[in-house]
């Protein structure tokens, strides 16, 4: 029998919990051609991520999703959780409370939230709650994370045409289909003999969402060697859960998620503005010569940090190109001239 599908929208909703409860995890990505109607329930000044997700709900452009987990990661996410319940009142919905900081009390609370999430999902799926099942799925997830890590290391070492898109396809499979299938694909990609090429400018990419594999092929056509996909829909999504951190898998999940590479909505209050420095460091570690940021319009968490990131990159002497738009290929297509000029300027 096919697993029931449970939708989610944020990288802080742990897929291992969803799968342990017997659901197929399906990340509702902001894609598709459905009509633009989210503004009727929300407002047009919300980010294209949440608007498109809601458009899909309103247009029923989803597989058979009957339950959703939202994470109140930012103001816009809170609003889409509200609107979903109006748009699809029959769905079971839970909202996970995600603290903004990685202090010990925040991590303790998030662990209780992950525990609550697991109990809720097991109940929704009429299954007996089992920490062991969660732990087992975390192990598979970590296997995927390590395998992807090898591919990402390879991305930084040299330019392998098509590798960035291949990595993205693996991540998308884990997000919308199954971690087992993604793992098999990742292993096949590791085993494949990739032929390196020369003459492309190594660029570290970061931002919130960029998940269409075709985008990375386009970038390659525009003379770019993508060294890292530092997105909520990229490498940050499949981050390792360090099970040695705690006996309780929920505590291990909370600690790992809150102390791993942060997205703009999570802060280390002991080092305000550290996201900027982390980007400088991660770009360097991936052997990039430059950084390109991609942020959705109206995304407050990212947009408010961009000036700081720009400054840190400037201080480090790393060229930076910032793009702001929606999630569509069309939008990226319009940036061709700027991106080509940028890679050309890098003079590889």
């Amino acid at each position: 029998m096919k697993d029931k599908i449970l939708g989610f929208t944020c990288a802080y909703a742990p897929v291992p919990i969803i799968e342990a409860a017997g659901f197929q995890a399906f990340r509702v990505l902001p894609q598709g051609e459905c009509p633009d109607q989210a503004g009727q329930l929300l407002h047009d000044n919300l980010c294209p991520h949440v608007k498109r997700v809601l458009d899909r709900a309103l247009d029923n452009d989803l597989p058979e999703v009957s339950a959703m987990v939202f994470v109140n990661s930012c103001d816009s996410m809170r609003r889409v959780a509200d609107a979903w319940q109006v748009a699809r009142p029959k769905d079971q919905v839970m909202v996970l409370d995600l603290p903004s900081t990685n202090t010990p009390s925040s991590i303790d609370f998030l662990a209780t939230e992950y525990d609550r999430m697991a109990r809720t999902l097991f109940t929704w799926n009429n299954q007996a709650f089992s920490r062991e099942k969660v732990r087992a799925r975390i192990k598979v997830w970590n296997d995927l994370s390590h395998t992807l890590g090898r591919l990402e290391t390879k991305m930084g070492e040299a330019f392998y045409p098509g590798l960035a898109a291949a990595v993205q396809i693996v991540v998308n499979t884990a997000a919308t289909d199954s971690v087992d299938a993604a793992l098999a694909m990742a292993k096949a990609a590791v085993a494949k003999a990739w032929a390196p090429a020369r003459g492309h400018a190594p660029v570290f990419l970061f931002g919130n969402l960029l998940f269409d594999p075709k985008v990375f092929d386009l970038f390659e056509n525009w003379n770019m060697h993508v060294t890292r996909l530092d997105f909520c829909t990229g490498s940050r999504f499949v981050s390792t859960v360090d099970l040695s951190l705690a006996d309780d898998p929920f505590v291990a999940l909370a600690r790992s998620y809150m102390t791993g590479p942060p997205c703009a909505r999570t802060m280390d209050i002991t080092r305000p503005g550290n996201l900027a420095q982390e980007i400088v460091e991660r770009a360097g570690a991936s052997n990039a010569r430059a950084v390109m940021g991609f942020t959705l319009k109206f995304c407050d968490p990212y947009l408010a940090r961009i000036p700081g990131i720009r400054q840190a990159l400037q201080d480090a002497g790393i060229p930076f190109l910032m793009l702001e738009g929606d999630c569509t290929m069309g939008d990226i297509g319009q940036q061709q001239t700027r991106i080509e000029a940028f890679t050309e300027m890098l003079g590889v």
């Binding site: 503004g39 009727q40 329930l41 929300l42 407002h43 000044n45 919300l46 980010c47 930012c74 103001d75 816009s76 809170r78 609003r79 509200d82 609107a83 109006v86 109206f298 407050d300």
Partner: peptide, 12 residues
């Protein structure tokens, strides 16, 4: 304008 938290609920 600019308030996702509040204005985001306009329709609801």
């Amino acid at each position: 304008w600019g308030c996702r938290q509040g204005t985001g609920l306009r329709g609801i």
